[in-house]
């Protein structure tokens, strides 16, 4: 892909990401919000591809867009919130929240990196073989700890979901 095409693709993906994130936090209907977040995740996956993180882009689509977001949508539909679209969508303090959000977003104006590229990027940066070697080499211990975190989450979710059944 030529440099110009990559640039154009990046700016398209970035502007759509920002737009869908904004729509996601401002739509009244929660289902619409979730679908906009889905659009956001897919476009972020595209940016990952442009940044040569192929494996991460696949994981983003499969785990984030495919599993986590569907999980959220599932719970949202399970709870069935008909009153949700009637009330105000923001709390009364929303100008303060907007100020906090703008403050963080303004940090983007300061984003500037002085250091040049440390080393020419290896040819296979971000490939499955590269990430896998890192994951099972220097990152083996954090990898195992991640499995422990997920195990704790599974046990926690089961305990939370079963609590009422035990009491009654």
């Amino acid at each position: 892909m030529s440099f110009l095409t990559a640039q154009a693709a990046f700016y398209y993906l970035a502007s759509v990401s920002v737009a869908s994130a904004l729509l996601a936090v401002t739509r009244k209907n929660p289902i619409h919000s979730m679908l906009w977040v889905l659009a956001l995740f897919l476009h972020v996956a595209g940016i990952f591809l442009l940044l040569r993180a192929e494996f991460l882009a696949a994981v983003q689509v499969i785990v984030y867009a495919g599993a986590i977001l569907v999980f959220y949508l599932f719970v949202l539909m399970l709870l069935d919130l008909p009153a949700e679209t009637a009330g105000p969508r923001f709390g009364r303090h929303w100008p303060l929240a907007a100020a906090a959000g703008l403050g963080f977003a303004a940090l983007g104006g300061l984003a500037h990196i002085e250091t040049p590229d440390a080393a020419p990027a290896p040819e296979d940066l971000g490939s499955l073989a590269d990430v896998g070697t890192k994951l099972f080499g220097p990152f083996a211990l954090p990898f195992e700890i991640a499995s422990l975190v997920l195990l704790a989450a599974i046990v926690g979710a089961v305990v939370l979901a079963k609590r009422r059944a035990v009491e009654s």
Binding site: S17, L81, R89
Partner: peptide
Amino acid sequence: DVVLALSAVLFGIGVFGFLARRNILL
């Protein structure tokens, strides 16, 4: 720099959504 700026903007939108929305799922 553009990537970092985009990241900061998305983070700011997330902060706004977390503080302003009243729906716990959102």
